[in-house]
Design a protein around this nucleic acid. Structure first.
Length: 447
RNA sequence: GUGAGUGUAGCUCAGGGGUAGAGCCCCGGAUUGUGGAUCCGGCCGUCGCGGGUUCGAAUCCCGUCACUCACCCCA
C-alpha cells in the first residue's frame, strides 16, 4: 500500500505547520494593517463559474468533479475545485453587490488546486494569499496593493525581491500597432516575456520563426533595445509613448503607479518591465509579478481586472488584486534559513515524569495544576513497571531531551514525603526542589 | 503535453552477473534515584512492479509505475 499523499499534495508535519502558520500570521497582520477584511469561500465552485476565465492553458488545469447519481455514467463534470481566489471573489462581489461596501477590500488565504505537473515550488494543492480591492479605478489601489505585498515580504526578511510592473493595454497597443494577428497575440507575448532568458537576438529569432514580418520584428526589437538603454522608467515611458500613441492611458497609469509606489513600503522594489506578459485571461490593466533571483517561478503576481465581475453580474466593476504564493515563500525561506529560532521550540514547557509504577493519578494531577497555571505540559504516558523502574525512568528523561522539552517535573519518594516537586533542567541536569504549590509559578518565570 | 534523472531496511545511501550491506533510528544490555558519550547485542528487506537474457539478475535488456528536476505555464 502506498502511504504517500496523492501526487502534488503534501502532508504537513508539526514543524511544517508551525512555519506555515508563522508566514500566514505575518501576511494577515500586514493585510489587516492596510484595511483589508477577511473572506473565505468554498473549495468547490460550479464548473461554469470557473470555466472560460483563465485562458486556454488555465482552463485545462482545472480539477473537475464528476456528476453524481445518474450523471456519473456520462463522465460529465458539473463542479470543480477552485483554481484561484480571484474568480470566487468576483462571484462574491457580483452576488453580494448591495451588502458590500462601495470599496470592498478583502484578503483571503486559502488553498487552491491545479492539475499541473508538480516540480520545485509547484504543487497541485497550494495556498494563495490574496488581497484585492474592488470598486475603484484609482491607481492608488495598485500602489497600496504593491505596498502591502512588499510590506509582507520585507517583514518576512526578504531583501532582494523585485516587483515587475507592466500594463495589458500597453501590450495590446503594441500588438495592434504592429498588426500582429489576434491568434498570434499569446505566442508573441510569451516570446517577448523571455527577453531576460534568451536575450534580444533570441527573442528576434523566436518572433521570425513564428512568421512575423521581418519589418515588424525589427520595429519591435528596436524599440525594446532603445528602452534597455534608457536609464529611468520615465524616459522609457516617453519613448514608448512616442512609438505607441494608442498606449497613452496605459502609460499615464504606469507613471502614476511608479510615482505613488515611491512613497510606500514598495519604494525601490517596483521595476517597469515591458516584457512581462502573464497568462491569466482576465487582466485588463496594470499587471504585476514578484520575483526573487533564485526561484524559477514567481513569488506572487496580480493585476487589474475591470470586467471580470461583469462576467457574473453583467455590470462591470473595477477591481485589482495581488497574490502571494505561500509555498513559494516557504521554499525560499527554507533554503535561506529565514525562520525565527522560536519556531523550532518544543511542544511543551515541561514534562511530568512518572516515577512510580502505579501513581499515574498523582502525575496527572500535577500536570493539571501546571496546565491551569498556563504552562504547556506533557505527561509521559507510560508508568514504569515494578521490575524495571530505573530503565523506564531513564527513558523518560531521554524522551524529554529528544523532544526538546526544557524541564522535567518529578515527584519521587522524598518529594512525596516532603510535599515538594523536583524540577530538572534537562540541559544542565540540575535539580531544584520546591514546594508543590510554588512550582508552577517558578516554572513560568523560567520559560 | 515534452525531456532528463532516481527508485535497495522506518530514514540517508553504498553495492553494478555468484550467500543483500553500512550509518542513523528503534529495542535490550554494560549502568537498581536517573540521561547526551562509548562499547556489546538485537529487530528491520518481495532490491518499485512486470517480462526477457542467463546455469544464476538488485546488477544486463525491454516495458510499466512512482518520485524528483527542467520545459510549457504559473503562486
Amino acid at each position: 500500500m502506498n502511504t504517500g499523499p496523492a501526487r502534488g499534495m503534501r502532508d504537513f508535519l508539526p514543524e511544517d505547520v508551525r512555519r506555515r502558520r508563522y508566514v500566514i500570521g505575518v501576511v494577515t497582520e500586514v493585510y489587516e494593517r492596510y484595511g483589508f477584511e477577511p473572506l473565505e469561500t468554498p473549495s468547490v465552485e460550479n464548473l461554469e463559474t470557473l470555466q472560460g476565465k483563465y485562458g486556454e492553458e488555465g482552463d485545462r488545469l482545472i480539477f473537475k468533479i464528476l456528476k453524481r447519481g445518474e450523471g456519473a455514467q456520462t463522465g460529465q463534470a458539473d463542479l470543480a475545485l477552485r483554481y484561484d481566489l480571484t474568480v470566487p471573489l468576483a462571484r462574491v462581489a457580483a452576488e453580494y453587490r448591495g451588502k458590500l461596501p462601495k470599496f470592498f477590500k478583502r484578503y483571503q488565504v486559502q488553498p487552491v488546486w491545479r492539475a499541473d505537473r508538480p516540480q520545485k515550488g509547484r504543487f497541485r494543492e497550494f495556498y494563495q494569499c490574496d488581497v484585492d480591492a474592488i470598486g475603484s479605478k484609482s491607481t492608488a489601489v495598485e500602489a497600496e496593493l504593491l505596498a502591502a505585498a512588499a510590506d509582507v515580504l520585507s517583514r518576512l526578511g526578504f531583501t532582494d525581491f523585485t516587483i515587475r510592473l507592466n500594463h495589458r493595454q500597453l501590450l495590446s497597443a503594441m500588438l495592434e500597432t504592429w498588426h500582429v494577428p489576434a491568434e498570434q497575440h499569446a505566442t508573441v507575448l510569451v516570446a517577448l516575456d523571455k527577453l531576460d532568458k534568451v536575450g534580444l537576438d533570441g527573442v528576434k529569432g523566436d518572433l521570425l520563426a513564428q512568421g512575423l514580418p521581418a519589418g515588424t520584428v525589427d520595429a519591435m526589437t528596436a524599440l525594446y533595445a532603445a528602452c534597455l538603454l534608457c536609464c529611468t522608467p520615465e524616459s522609457v515611458l516617453d519613448l514608448i509613448g512616442e512609438a505607441l500613441p494608442a498606449a497613452q492611458s496605459a502609460i499615464g497609469e504606469l507613471r502614476e503607479i511608479l510615482a505613488l509606489s515611491a512613497v510606500t513600503s514598495a519604494a525601490g522594489t517596483v521595476r517597469l518591465d515591458l516584457f512581462l506578459a502573464r497568462g491569466l485571461g482576465y487582466y485588463t490593466g496594470a499587471i504585476f509579478e514578484i520575483a526573487v533571483p533564485d526561484l524559477a517561478g514567481s513569488l506572487g503576481g496580480g493585476g487589474r481586472y475591470d470586467n471580470l465581475i461583469g462576467m457574473f453580474s453583467g455590470e462591470d466593476v473595477p477591481a485589482c488584486g495581488i497574490s502571494l504564493g505561500l509555498e513559494r515563500m516557504l521554499v525560499v525561506m527554507a533554503e535561506r534559513n529565514m525562520f525565527p529560532p522560536s519556531l523550532v521550540a518544543s511542544a511543551a514547557d515541561v514534562m511530568v515524569v512518572q516515577w512510580f509504577a502505579a501513581k499515574t493519578d498523582l502525575c496527572l494531577a500535577l500536570a493539571t495544576e501546571f496546565r491551569a497555571a498556563g504552562l504547556r505540559v506533557e505527561l509521559y504516558p507510560e508508568a514504569p513497571t515494578e521490575d524495571n523502574q530505573k530503565g523506564a525512568i531513564v527513558k523518560q528523561f531521554q524522551y524529554a531531551q529528544a523532544r526538546g522539552i526544557p524541564f522535567a517535573a518529578v515527584i519521587g519518594k522524598p518529594e512525596l514525603a516532603a510535599g515538594t516537586v523536583s524540577v530538572r533542567t534537562l540541559a544542565t541536569r540540575q535539580d531544584d526542589s520546591r514546594p508543590r504549590a510554588d512550582v508552577a509559578a517558578y516554572l513560568k518565570t523560567k520559560i
